[in-house]
Write a protein that binds this DNA or RNA. Structure first.
Lengths: 241, 241
DNA sequence: CGCTGGTTTGAAGGTCGTCAAGAAGGGTGG
DNA sequence: CCACCCTTCTTGACGACCTTCAAACCAGCG
């Protein structure tokens, strides 16, 4: 039988923050016991919903977002392997955002109360989860800066820099390439732009020989050039500096 | 001698989430023991700083923000009385944003380790602090939506709606009026606009007979009209619905 | 009374959105 | 294997929103 603990993407992620004991790993493994397949497009949490669950994303891509009365939508984040979604909403009782699968995905649905129990039983685990939550919030803050104060070109470059770094940390990207199943519509809703302008911006990045997005694959041609254009400082993504 | 506990703005805020015991209140009061006066303009935390403190704002206005290489600045939030700043950064080790006083202010500087001790000693207090942190993050998320998907007019209206609600909760605003010492430059850095466009937007709000900002005072002329324009749903600000 | 920080207004230009339509993929069924 | 679909991408023209630059005005304060 394979070691269930080393299979846990969540354990892998939290281990970058602090070394977890056998018991703590078991608790995490227990949390991720039953995996649920989720078809592309399915909505798992709806804004305003109460009594919802926390999700640990195992495979696939997803997004959390808020919708506006006029039908517009702002994507808050793109959770990937090992990311936790909805932890914050547990304390607020009502979910403050929606959560959908963008591709076929696999998740664990965990009761909020179960998480609470783990945290009180294993305080170090609680600290690790808090660290993960802090990192997620730092990402939202950077997203805010990105939309508020950077041009479409810088903004898009910064977005892909961050994504590349996150995917690299979980082994889903190389120095120069990674899979990225995000349509230009989806990118637009994340970047606060129109899909049409996203298209123009991607073309410009391509013509500047910085980055290409083609057939759901991002290829990075000039990493220093991109970092420079985006003003990217990825410190908020790593546990140790 | 006056009851020190009832004097604590932080205790008042956390009490809206759950009723605190005598011991828990004492712990909070202890945390807020020594108050420090801070002159207007002083920077308390610098982006990238390590070993920094957590602050509880007692009086005055402040802002947390990030700066860009080109000198631009994005304001993340405006902490007011009873708000906690820098809690997240304790876990990330390095502060991911800066923090400055906008007016003369009074704060408590609390060591991160001291907070940790309180939390482990009084788990319910920890839960209350987490709730406050969740609420703060929900505000950042709403800020993101605001900048990403609303026009300057809607955005500005929404900003003042949220501010009015927050100030009302701590007793610093009436139905129709509150003090607001934010210059148009500062507003611009918060709203992702130019100060010049903020000016035009404020004029439009004034001409629409919705809201006036004059001599550091906001007067609300038409609350339903503003809510409607902004698409404001304040649920994320309250503990109970 | 003059200084200083903040507000107000105008004119011109650029970034980004809107509308419209065509091209390119990727999957499905014949 | 090809025809057909649908989604996604791509491009062009035009206009709106917001920025930039420049200058005048106002209010508080020494």
């Amino acid at each position: 039988m394979p070691n269930a603990q080393s299979d846990s993407v969540l354990a892998k992620k939290l281990s970058t923050f602090l070394r977890l004991s056998k018991d703590e790993l078991n608790c995490l493994a227990d949390m991720q016991r039953h995996r649920v397949k989720v078809p592309r497009g399915q909505q798992l949490t709806r804004e305003g919903q109460t009594g919802h669950k926390v999700f640990v994303l195992q495979e696939g891509w997803a997004c959390s977002f808020k919708t506006l009365p006029d039908g517009g939508r702002q994507i808050i984040s793109f959770p990937i392997e090992g990311d936790i979604v909805g932890l914050r909403s547990v304390l607020l009782r009502t979910a403050d955002h929606s959560f959908s699968a963008l591709t076929d995905a696999v998740v664990n649905a965990v009761e909020g109360s179960h998480i609470m129990k783990c945290v009180t039983e294993y305080p170090r685990l609680g600290a690790a989860l808090l660290w993960a939550a802090s990192r997620d919030e730092a990402m939202v803050v950077e997203h805010l800066v990105n939309i508020g104060r950077r041009s479409a070109l810088e903004r898009t470059a910064h977005f892909f820099m961050e994504l590349a770094e996150r995917l690299t940390l979980v082994g889903l990207a190389t120095e120069t390439e990674f899979a990225c199943p995000l349509s230009q519509f989806v990118l637009a809703d994340a970047l606060g732009l129109t899909s049409i302008h996203v298209n123009r911006t991607l073309r410009e990045l391509r013509e500047m020989k910085l980055l290409t997005l083609r057939r759901r694959t991002v290829t990075i041609h000039d990493l220093p050039g991109l970092r420079n254009l985006a003003g990217f400082q990825g410190g908020y993504l790593n546990a140790r500096d």
